[in-house]
Simulated assay, not measured.
Amino acid sequence: MDNGYHYVYPICQIYNGEICAVQKSGNMFVAKVFNLSRKNTRQAAYYELRLMLLCNHQNVVRAVNFFQDDDFACIVMPKYRECDIYEYLMENENKLLNFITDVSAGLQYLHQLHIIHRDLNPSNIFVDQNGHFVIGDLGSAQLCHRNNNNEYVAQVMVGSAPFRAPEMLNTTYSFCVDLWNFGLMIHELVHGQFPFEFETEAEFLYLLKHFEYQPESRNNLIDDLIWTLLNKNPCKRYEYTKVVAKLQ
């Protein structure tokens, strides 16, 4: 490493580099290291850094530093707790409402900046040292611009297969794909499983096209929230903010 940061240990490999723990002046951080020898990686690193520098919110990851040489580019971020988010919430059931309100606040902030995360899933939610939930990894995120119909849209299908929203099968989609992902996470946390099952990519794409969420019950606000977020009509998912307000 460089710029005063020292490599401590690896956390995980990514398609264009590595995530690792680093240290500087006795303080721990996380570094996303991009291997610049891989095609389009330099542009990806700069774009992700650009999005992170736009953000200043306690529930969205931020960049602490950035440096590069001829071979690597490195985005330095705060060091969050290393834990499986589902296991953490199972052990701290009283934190579920905090999870919902924190992720909701982070999403609303990103969407106000016209950023779609596009890969919201449990591996990209972190817990900071104060117990706040933080949306991380903007590597698949996109800053949207208005189209000819004055709508903010994206076009490329990205993200982890189980968390892709139905409208990603269309030509364009917008911020509501993140709300679908949010609903899937809450459903799995509350009910211990996904609302649908599949084994192959073809089965998943078929389900995505034909799936209609039918909850077993809507006896409480969290079930109502899941039902709202998993609405096949993207525009109706925005009503989730009313349910979150009631939960608070």
Score class of each variant (00 low, 15 high):
182 F>W: 11
120 L>G: 00
128 D>G: 01
69 D>P: 03
77 M>E: 06
115 I>H: 03
211 F>G: 08
159 G>S: 09
223 D>W: 11
74 C>W: 08
248 Q>Y: 15
162 P>I: 09
14 I>C: 13
222 I>G: 06
18 E>N: 12
175 F>R: 12
50 R>P: 04
94 N>F: 13
65 N>M: 00
142 Q>N: 08
73 A>C: 10
55 C>L: 07
84 D>F: 06
170 N>S: 10
107 L>E: 02
185 M>Y: 14
192 G>R: 14
100 I>W: 11
135 I>Y: 00
129 Q>M: 05
141 A>G: 03
46 Y>M: 14
52 M>F: 06
247 L>G: 02
139 G>E: 01
59 N>K: 02
52 M>V: 01
112 Q>K: 14
228 T>L: 07
42 R>M: 06
202 A>C: 13
90 M>A: 07
83 C>D: 10
5 Y>D: 04
133 F>Q: 00
190 V>W: 15
213 Y>G: 03
70 D>M: 07
203 E>S: 13
74 C>I: 07
87 E>L: 05
213 Y>L: 05
3 N>K: 11
3 N>L: 07
210 H>D: 07
74 C>Q: 11
121 N>T: 01
220 N>M: 04
131 G>N: 03
103 V>W: 13
26 G>I: 01
208 L>N: 11
8 V>Y: 11
86 Y>A: 01
143 L>E: 04
136 G>N: 00
195 P>K: 14
4 G>C: 13
56 N>T: 01
202 A>E: 15
124 N>L: 09
9 Y>L: 12
106 G>E: 01
225 L>H: 02
98 N>K: 09
222 I>S: 03
230 L>Q: 05
32 K>W: 12
150 N>C: 12
93 E>H: 08
170 N>T: 08
135 I>S: 00
85 I>Q: 09
89 L>Q: 02
119 D>T: 02
69 D>F: 01
146 R>L: 09
161 A>R: 15
140 S>C: 15
114 H>I: 00
95 K>Q: 15
245 A>P: 05
221 L>K: 11
34 F>S: 02
167 E>T: 04
108 Q>M: 11
209 K>Y: 14
50 R>V: 00
59 N>V: 00
2 D>H: 12
152 Y>E: 04
19 I>F: 11
27 N>Y: 12
183 G>Y: 09
37 S>Y: 09
196 F>I: 08
71 D>F: 10
18 E>D: 07
94 N>T: 09
223 D>G: 08
97 L>H: 04
58 Q>S: 12
224 D>C: 10
125 I>T: 00
145 H>A: 04
115 I>W: 07
184 L>F: 03
10 P>S: 06
10 P>V: 05
222 I>Y: 06
23 Q>L: 02
162 P>W: 13
166 P>N: 10
9 Y>P: 06
224 D>R: 11
162 P>C: 15
148 N>E: 15
164 R>L: 12
83 C>P: 04
142 Q>P: 04
193 Q>L: 13
109 Y>T: 05
